[in-house]
Simulated scan of single mutants.
Amino acid sequence: MSSAPNHGTGTGGTVTEAGPPAVAAPGRLQQVFSHVKVENLIAGLSGGVVSTLVLHPLDLVKIRFAVSDGLELRPQYRGIMHCMKSVWALEGLRGLYQGATPNIWGAGASWGLYFFFYNAIKGYTKEGRDTELSAGEHLVSAAQAGILTLSITNPIWVTKTQLILQYGSDPTSKQYKGMLDALVKIYRNEGVPGLYRGFVPGLFGTSHGALQFMAYEELKRGYNKHKKVPSEAKLNALEYITMAALSKIFAVATTYPYQVVRARLQDQHNTYNGVADVIARTWRNEGVTGFYKGIVPNLIRVTPACCITFVVYENVSRFLLGTK
């Protein structure tokens, strides 16, 4: 979220009259890296992989609805269950897990890197302070982590989208045998720009992860304050699930249209002249509802996915950090 979740890093030096950035940047980077913990990477990766394995078929449904712009080659679905039954009838379980390999790699890498960068940036921001971070600082830390993560993982998301949009009813759309084949062919035919389709709306999508993490942190802090315990006190599984679900619903409701724009840019069956063209054509042909296509299967998928990811992350990270 693959899933999730995405602004500069805020870690480099700034050119000023007082001196060159070459002196400041290494010092700041060293401070940031002092807060890096591989345990956060492993815990985030674990959460992303587990949630993707469980819920990938709903991701497939969401993407197919998101790009349903009237092209004749696309199968027509009446709803979530009809879509899943149609795919199952044509291709079985394998059809429901089209694009699962890049999704697992992408979700695992994205959640792992996101938590990895986020905790490092948050630790650096908080260094030497007795006060807790504000909501705005959580927002900025999460946005910076999202940009770094997206820069690394965007090619995986392009292959995932194009694999999912290979329709069993249309043999001519079966261009790729798998994730590596897709990566090679996209690079061969379109070069690096092909692997970074949808990157610009993906950058807007970093606001999704930033809003989600800000809401999650503020909900945890407010809840622990209400209980009169330290803000970082461990919660039980149900409490983590509640905080994760509320923060995810808030973020999805606020930022969903960018996911439709991004999926359409990454779709191999249509050609757009950039983000503005997608927005204009979607608005002209489908109105405001076009920007919210697939939101129901998306909410059904991402809310439990987020809950699974955060519960696994919180428990694995505490176990690993506690063991260390």
Rank of each mutant, 00 (worst) to 15 (best):
A245C: 12
F213K: 11
P304C: 05
G10K: 10
V261L: 01
P230K: 07
N40L: 11
D170R: 12
L211E: 02
I121F: 04
V312F: 02
I147L: 13
L96M: 09
L93K: 06
L195W: 05
L238A: 13
V67S: 05
G178S: 01
Y292L: 03
L299I: 06
V184Q: 12
R64H: 11
K174P: 02
R264Y: 00
T131Q: 09
A43L: 09
Y216K: 12
Q76S: 10
N119M: 13
G168A: 15
F213M: 10
G202W: 11
I186S: 02
A120T: 06
Y114Q: 13
W111S: 04
G48H: 14
R129P: 02
V158T: 03
L195C: 09
I152H: 02
Y97S: 04
W88K: 02
L238P: 02
Y258L: 09
K126L: 13
L150F: 08
N298A: 15
V50E: 06
R74E: 07
R221E: 07
D59A: 14
K177L: 14
H269I: 09
Q76K: 14
L53P: 00
A263S: 09
A215P: 00
Q144M: 04
V54K: 10
Y256P: 05
A215H: 01
T11M: 14
L183I: 15
S46K: 04
V229N: 13
W105V: 15
E217Y: 01
D267H: 00
D59C: 15
V158I: 14
V54C: 11
T125H: 03
P102D: 03
I241N: 07
A280C: 05
S151H: 12
K324Q: 10
L58E: 13
T149K: 07
F213V: 00
T11E: 03
P102V: 00
K228N: 12
L321T: 15
P20L: 06
C83T: 14
Y77Q: 06
M84F: 08
R281A: 01
R221C: 02
T255Q: 02
K248N: 04
T289M: 12
T289L: 05
G112S: 03
S86E: 14
F250R: 05
F116I: 01
A100Y: 03
G44V: 08
A100Q: 01
G191E: 02
H226L: 14
T255G: 07
V296G: 07
F199D: 00
E239L: 08
I42L: 08
P297Q: 12
T149A: 06
L55N: 07
K248Y: 02
Y124R: 15
G19R: 03
I147W: 10
D59Y: 11
G123R: 09
A109I: 06
A276I: 13
V200N: 03
E218C: 09
W157I: 04
Q212H: 11
R284E: 04
K185N: 08
V32C: 06
